[in-house]
Amino acid sequence: MRSRVDVGRRGRPRSNRLRGAVIAAVMIAMTIRTMPAWAKPERIVSMNLCTDQLVMLLADRERIASVSYLAADPHASALAGDVAGVRINHGLAEEILPMKPDLVLAGAFTTRPTVFLLRRLGYLVVELPVAANLDDIRSNIRAVARAIGEPRRGEALIAAFDGKLPPQHPNSGPRPRAVLYWANGYTSGKDTLANAAVEAAGFRTLGSELGITGTSQLPLETLLAADPDVLIVGRERDGPALANETFRHPALRRAFATRPKVSVPDYLWVCGTPFVADAIARLSAVREAGRHEGRVGVADK
C-alpha cells in the first residue's frame, strides 16, 4: 500500500497527476497478489518436502503459513519434529487459496496442475529444481532465501553448510569404492545428490564408474562382481515391502559380512538441504575408521 502514497507525492504537473494515479492504481491491483520483489512475503506456503525444510531453516516461523504433509514425516524430513503448530497442506489449490499466500514454494516436478492453477490465478509461485549436486544445494538455499527476502540468512546457512563439509584434499589417501544400494536394487550415479555426497566424503562410487546417470537398477551380480569396499544402503522402511528383500539377499549378506555396511537415513539427503553435510560427515567418518583399521583401502590398488 505504501507505493500508492509514494507515487502520489511526486511533484508532477497536475495534468499528469490523474494519469499517475491511474497507473498507480493499476500497479497496486497487479501487485496485490503478485507480490513485488522488495516486499517480504508474510504468508509463505510450501508444497514440497525440500522447500518445506529450506523455508523452515530460513524464515521466521510466524511467516510460514503452511508446509506439506511430508515435512511432518520423520522418515523423509529432517525437521519433522519442528513442524508442530504449522498448518499442513497436501498440495491442493483448495487448501492453499484460503491461506491467501503471498509466496508459494513448490518443487519442479511435484504438484504440477496446482502450480499452474495458482499461477493462473495470479499467485507468486517459486519453483525449485531437484538438487543433483552440492552446488545445487547452495543455489537452492540462495533461491529460497531471495524469494522470502532473507538473503543474509541464506548466505549464513550456506557458510554453515560449507563449514560442516570435510576438507577436500583430492590426493590425500586412498579413495575406497562405495556402492549405493536402495530398496528394489536401485543405485544412484552421476547427477544425483546421494552420489555427489558419497564422492564428497572421499569415496569413488560404483554408479559413476559404471557410467550410470540418475537412479537406475543395479543387478546384484554386477554389484558383487565389482567387489566394492563399502555398501551404503537406504534405511529400511517399516511395513512389509518386497523392495526390502534386496537387502536380505544371502549373497549380499555374505559378501558384506566383514566389510562396512552403512545406512544413511533418507531424511538427510533425499532433499538438497544443508543436512546433506551430516550425511557426508557420517560417510567420511566411516572412511576414516576404515583407513585406520587398514581395511577399507585394501581394494584400492
Partner: peptide, 10 residues
C-alpha cells in the same frame, strides 16, 4: 528412463 525418482512418481 525417468530423469529422477520424483519425475517417475509424478
Amino acid at each position: 528412463l525417468a530423469p529422477n525418482p520424483f519425475a517417475a512418481l509424478e
